[in-house]
Design a protein around this nucleic acid. Structure first.
Length: 876
RNA sequence: GGGCUCUUAGCUCAGCUGGUUCAGAGCACCUGCCUUACAAGCAGGGGGUCACUGGUUCGAAUCCAGUAGGGCCCA
C-alpha cells in the first residue's frame, strides 16, 4: 500500500472526529462503572478560542481520554457562561453601531437582542474545541442562562435570603461608569498611573488664614464635607473647631480631628469626601458628616458640580485646575504616581460610589470550604502552593456583592411593593411574591401590577458557582439519578486567576447545597505567556491564532507543544517551535508505522537479537508505564508526556526497531512481527490521550476494526512487574554499542566496514547480548579474552575492557593517555569513597542502605582500576 | 505596606521526607552522516561553584537565617 512519508493531519483529523461523534463514544449515561467526571470551566459565551483555553482544555481532554481507556464512565460536560458584563458590553456596542441605544429599549427588547447575539456567536468556541479534539459529551452542553440553570440560581437566591444570608446594603462599591455597573473587588485591576498631587488652599471662615490640603482628585472638592487633621499635629491645633470654605462652591465645612490622618502625607490636612472614597465614608459616618454625591452614573457631574454639570470627571479635573489656578486656590502641583483601580472588562477607571446592593454573608458559608481544602484534604489542590493563596482569601473574606446593574443575567427575585426600606419580598415567582407581599404589608388588595421587580441581575459567578451541580440539575431535583451518580466530580482544571471568583465559591456552594465537595482534585494550569513573559492578550496582539496553529501543526502537534513545556502550575512561555516539536513527533511515529507496514512477514525462525530485544522492551515499557502512572497521580501531565515521548522515540524507535529490523528486502519472522505490532498498539494507547487523531488513524490502519474496537474506547495497558535485571543489562549493552560507535566516529570508520570485537568480560555480561551488539554496530565477531589485546583500540564499560583490532597504526601514546586519564579520575573517586567509609561518624550515623551503596562503589572502582592498570601494563 | 512564591546548562524546567536517579531532561548548539521508515531524520559531543553569605550536619542544590533580584495575590 502507498503511505505518504509525511503525516498529514489536515486530512485525517475531521474524519476521525466525525467518526467518534457518529459512534457516540463521548456520551455518558450513568451505569455500574466508576464515574470519572469533569465539568468544563465554562468559557465566556462571546469568547473565541485562545491559548489559555487550548492549554486548559487539552489537559482536560488528556485526563478524560485516559479515564475512558481505563474503563471508567468518563463524562466531560461542556458549556458556556453568559458573562453578563462582557456580553452586555458587546451587545450594547453592536446596537450602537446600528444606531440603537440601550436606553431606548425596554428590558425585553434588549434581552431579545442579547439572545440573538448569543445564538449567533455562542457556539463558536465550542466548535473550536472540537477542532482541538476535545471529547466532551456534547449532548450535555449547558449554558448558565438555560432555563433550569436560571431557575437553580433563583431558587438558591431565595433560599439564601430566607436563611438570612442575603441582605441589602448601602455600600461603597466599585462602580464602572462605562458599563454602568458594580464590580467586585476581584474584578478591579489596580494600575500605576502618573498623576498629579494638587495642593489647594481653603480659606478659614472669619479669618485671613488658609489651610492647604493635597489631593489627587481636585474635581471632588465639590463633594467635600469636612477637613480633617490629626489631633497630634501641632501645626494645625489652632484650627480645631473652626470652619473652612470650599473653593468655588463656597460650602462651609467643619474642621475635624482624627488620628486616621497621616501627618507625613501631603500637608497633613485631609479633605473629606464621604460620597467618593471608602476611607472618607468611614470618617463621615464616624463624625456624622453630610454626604454630597457629585456624580451621575456615567461619571459626569450632577447639579452639585455647578457649572461643570454634565461634564466628564476627567474633563472637569482639567478645567477645575485652571479655575482654581485663576482664582488663586491652587498652590502648586507635584508629579505623583498612584494606583488607580480600573475595570477588568472595560478598562474604565473605577469610581467609588455609594449604592444600594445585595450582599451574601460569607462568614459561615466559608467554614466547610476552608476545612475541606486545608484541614481534611477532602479536596486537593495541584500544585499545593495554591492552598496558601486560598487560605489567605478565605480567612479574610468579605461579604459578596452579588448584584450587578445590568439586564443580561438572572434578574434578582426581589419584588417591591412600597417605598419603605423594607417594603419588599423575595420569591421564586411573582405569584408567590404577591402572596408574601400581601401578608407582609397586611394589604390584601395588592395586585400583581403593584409589584415592581428589582432591576438588577445577579453576578455571573452567582450562576457558575452552582455549575458542578446545576449541569446535572442537582439544585432543582437534588435526588435525581444523574447528580447522585456524577457528583462529586473528579477533577477540575482551571487557571489560578479564578481561584476566588470561581473555585472557592463552587466549593462553598457544594457544601451548602449538597453537603459535599464539588470535585476531588483541582489542577491549576499556568498562564500562557509569550517568549518575553508577557501575558497573552488581545490588546497586545501577541496571541497566535489558535485555529491557524492547528492548521499548521495539526491538533496533535499543538497539544503536544502546549503540554511539553507546561510544568504543573508554572506559566507557559509559548513558542511556536514547541508545536513544531509536536509535529515532528507525529511524523516520527508515522514513519515508524510505515516501516512496519513495509515488512514482508515470513514463517522463519526468530533471531536471537529480536527475541531478547522484545523481552527487554516489554520490561522497559512496564517500567515506564509505572512512571507514567505516578506522574498522572501527581498531575504532572508534561512529565507523563515526556516519559511517553522518550519511550516511543528512544526506546521503541531508536533501539527496538533497529534491533528487529530485517536486512534490506529480507522478510521478518512472524513471531517478532506480531510482538512488535502488539507493542506498537500499546504505545498508541499510552499516547492516545495526548495525540488522539494520529493514534486513531494509525490504529485503524493497522487492522480492520469494528466500531467497538476503536482506539478511543480500547483498554489502557495494565502494568506487569518489569524485569529490572533485563533493563540493567540492556543499559550495559547500550554502553558497549555507544563505545563502538564512538570509536567508529573518532577513527572515521564507516558503518559499512565490519569490525572485530574482543572483550575481557570481568563484569560477566551474558553472551546473549552479543547478537544485539553485533547487529547494531556491524561487528562480525565477538571473542572473549583473558588478557589485553595488543595493537587494538580500546574502551571500557565499568571493569569490562573492549578491544577493536584495526589494520594500520594504533596510536599507542593516545591510548595510554586515555587510560591514564580514566585511571586518574577513578582513583580520585575511589579515594573520596574510602574517605567517607573510614569516617567513623559516617559509618555510625548513615543508614545501612547508604553504607552498602558506598561499599559497592568502592568495589566497582577497585575492579575498574585493576582493569585499567592491566591494560596500561600491556601497552608499555 | 502585608501574604505567598521563585532563583539549577544558552532557553524552558525536573530534582519527593538531606546520602547513586546528584548534578538531570527536552529544546537549542557543535561535529559527522542524503545508511531505502523518518534530514520534520540518524550517530556522536560540549556545556552548570545549583543567585549570594553564613549556619546546622559525618554529609547540603535539598534544612535554617540573612542579603540581592524576579514573579503572583491582597491593600
Amino acid at each position: 500500500m502507498d503511505i505518504p512519508s509525511k503525516y498529514e493531519p489536515q486530512k485525517v483529523e475531521n474524519r476521525w472526529y466525525d467518526y467518534w461523534m457518529k459512534h457516540n463514544y463521548f456520551h455518558s449515561i450513568p451505569d455500574g462503572r466508576e464515574p470519572y467526571t469533569i465539568v468544563i470551566p465554562p468559557p465566556n459565551v462571546t469568547g473565541i478560542l485562545h491559548m489559555g483555553h487550548m492549554l486548559n482544555n487539552t489537559i482536560q481532554d488528556v485526563l478524560i481520554r485516559r479515564a475512558r481507556l481505563q474503563g471508567k464512565n468518563a463524562c466531560w460536560v461542556p458549556g458556556t457562561d453568559h458573562a453578563s458584563i462582557a456580553t452586555e458590553a458587546k451587545v450594547v456596542a453592536k446596537l450602537k453601531e446600528e444606531g440603537i441605544h440601550k436606553a431606548d429599549l425596554s428590558r425585553e427588547e434588549f434581552l431579545n437582542h442579547a439572545w440573538d447575539w448569543t445564538h449567533e456567536y455562542g457556539g463558536v468556541i465550542l466548535e473550536q474545541l472540537k477542532k482541538l479534539g476535545c471529547s466532551c459529551d456534547w449532548d450535555r452542553t449547558a449554558f448558565t442562562m438555560d432555563e433550569n440553570m436560571s431557575a437553580s440560581v433563583i431558587k438558591v437566591f431565595v433560599d439564601l435570603f430566607n436563611k438570612g444570608m442575603i441582605y441589602r446594603g448601602y455600600r461603597m462599591v466599585n462602580w464602572d461608569p462605562q458599563a454602568q455597573t458594580t464590580l467586585s473587588d476581584e474584578e478591579v485591576v489596580y494600575e500605576e498611573k502618573q498623576g498629579l498631587l494638587y495642593y489647594l488652599s481653603y480659606p478659614i471662615e472669619g479669618s485671613d488664614e488658609k489651610v492647604i490640603i493635597a489631593t489627587t482628585r481636585p474635581e471632588t472638592i465639590l463633594g467635600d464635607t469636612a477637613i480633617c487633621i490629626n489631633p497630634n499635629d501641632e501645626r494645625y491645633s489652632h484650627l480645631k473647631g473652626k470652619k473652612a470654605i470650599v473653593p468655588i462652591c463656597n460650602r462651609v465645612i467643619p474642621i475635624i480631628t482624627d488620628e486616621y490622618v497621616d501627618i507625613e502625607f501631603g500637608t497633613g490636612c485631609l479633605k473629606v469626601t464621604p460620597a467618593h472614597d471608602v476611607n472618607d465614608k468611614a470618617l463621615g459616618e464616624k463624625h456624622e458628616l453630610e454626604t454630597v454625591d457629585i456624580f451621575n452614573a456615567d461619571a459626569t457631574l450632577n447639579s452639585f458640580g455647578l457649572h461643570y454639570e454634565g461634564k466628564d470627571r476627567f474633563v472637569v479635573r482639567k478645567e477645575i485646575k485652571k479655575e482654581l489656578e485663576d482664582k488663586g486656590f491652587l498652590v502648586k502641583t507635584e508629579n505623583y504616581i498612584n494606583k488607580v483601580g480600573t475595570s477588568e472588562r472595560t478598562k474604565a477607571v473605577i469610581e467609588p460610589r455609594l449604592s444600594e446592593q445585595w450582599f451574601l454573608k460569607m462568614e459561615d458559608l466559608v467554614k466547610p470550604a476552608i476545612e475541606a481544602v486545608l484541614e481534611t484534604d477532602d479536596i486537593n489542590f495541584f500544585p499545593k502552593k495554591f492552598e496558601n493563596t486560598y487560605r489567605h482569601w478565605m480567612e479574610n473574606i468579605r461579604d459578596w456583592n452579588i448584584s450587578r446593574q445590568l439586564w443580561w443575567g438572572q434578574q434578582i427575585p426581589a419584588y417591591y411593593f412600597g417605598d419603605g426600606q423594607d417594603d419588599f419580598v423575595v420569591a421564586e415567582s411573582v405569584e408567590e411574591a404577591l402572596i408574601l407581599a400581601q401578608g407582609k404589608s397586611n394589604n390584601y388588595e395588592l395586585a400583581l401590577s403593584d409589584l415592581r421587580q428589582d432591576e438588577d441581575v445577579v453576578d455571573t459567578w452567582f450562576s457558575s458557582w452552582l455549575w458542578p451541580m446545576s449541569v446535572f440539575n442537582g439544585i432543582l431535583e437534588p435526588d435525581n439519578k444523574e447528580i447522585n451518580y456524577y457528583y462529586p466530580t473528579s477533577d477540575l482544571v482551571t487557571a489560578p486567576d479564578i481561584i476566588f471568583f470561581w473555585v472557592a465559591r463552587m466549593i462553598i456552594a457544594g457544601y451548602e447545597y449538597r453537603g459535599e465537595k464539588p470535585f476531588e482534585n483541582v489542577y491549576f494550569t499556568g498562564i500562557v505567556r509569550d517568549k518575553e513573559r508577557r501575558k497573552m492578550s488581545k490588546s497586545l496582539g501577541n496571541s497566535p491564532d489558535a485555529l491557524k496553529l492547528i492548521e499548521n501543526y495539526g491538533a496533535d502537534g499543538v497539544r503536544v507543544g502546549l503540554l511539553l513545556s507546561s510544568a504543573a502550575g508554572n506559566d507557559l512561555l509559548f513558542d511556536e517551535d514547541l508545536c513544531q516539536q509536536g509535529k515532528n513527533f507525529a511524523n516520527k511515529i508515522w514513519n515508524g508505522f510505515r516501516l512496519l507496514k513495509g515488512w514482508e512477514v515470513a514463517d522463519i525462525p526468530q533471531p536471537e537479537a529480536s527475541k531478547l530485544g522484545i523481552a527487554w522492551y516489554n520490561a522497559k515499557f512496564n517500567h515506564t508505564l509505572a512512571e507514567i502512572e505516578d506522574h498522572f497521580g501527581k498531575f504532572r501531565i508534561s512529565d507523563a508526556l515526556m516519559a511517553i515521548y522518550k519511550l516511543i522515540w528512544d526506546d521503541y524507535s531508536s533501539w527496538l526497531l533497529e534491533i528487529v529490523k530485517p536486512a534490506y528486502q529480507q522478510p521478518i519472522d512472524r513471531m517478532s512481527f506480531e510482538a512488535i505490532i502488539g507493542i506498537f498498539e500499546n504505545n498508541l494507547k499510552l499516547l492516545h490521550p495526548f495525540m488522539p487523531f494520529l493514534t486513531e488513524e494509525i490504529w485503524q490502519h493497522i487492522a480492520e476494526r469494528s466500531p467497538n474496537e476503536a482506539l478511543v474506547v480500547s483498554q489502557w495497558p495494565s502494568i506487569q512487574k518489569p524485569d529490572v535485571g533485563l533493563i540493567r543489562q540492556f543499559e550495559f549493552a547500550a554502553e558497549v554499542i555507544a563505545g563502538i560507535r564512538t570509536i567508529r566516529k573518532e577513527k572515521n570508520i564507516p558503518m559499512k566496514e565490519s569490525l572485530e570485537l574482543l572483550v575481557s568480560n570481568a563484569e560477566k555480561l551474558g553472551r546473549d547480548w552479543d547478537a544485539i551488539i553485533k547487529k547494531l554496530t556491524n561487528v562480525s565477531s565477538i571473542s572473549y579474552v583473558d588478557a589485553a589485546v595488543e595493537g587494538a583500540l580500546t574502551f571500557r564499560v565499568n571493569s569490562n575492557e573492549y578491544f577493536i583490532p584495526i589494520s594500520g597504526a594504533v596510536d599507542v601514546e593516545a591510548e595510554i593517555k586515555k587510560i591514564k586519564e580514566e585511571l586518574k579520575y577513578t582513583k580520585g573517586f575511589l579515594q573520596s569513597v574510602r574517605k567517607k567509609l573510614s569516617n567513623e561518624r559516617f559509618v555510625n550515623n548513615a543508614p545501612d542502605k547508604v553504607i552498602a551503596i558506598e561499599r559497592k562503589k568502592q568495589a566497582d572502582a577497585e575492579a575498574k582500576i585493576e582493569t585499567l592498570e592491566k591494560s596500561l601494563a600491556s601497552l608499555n
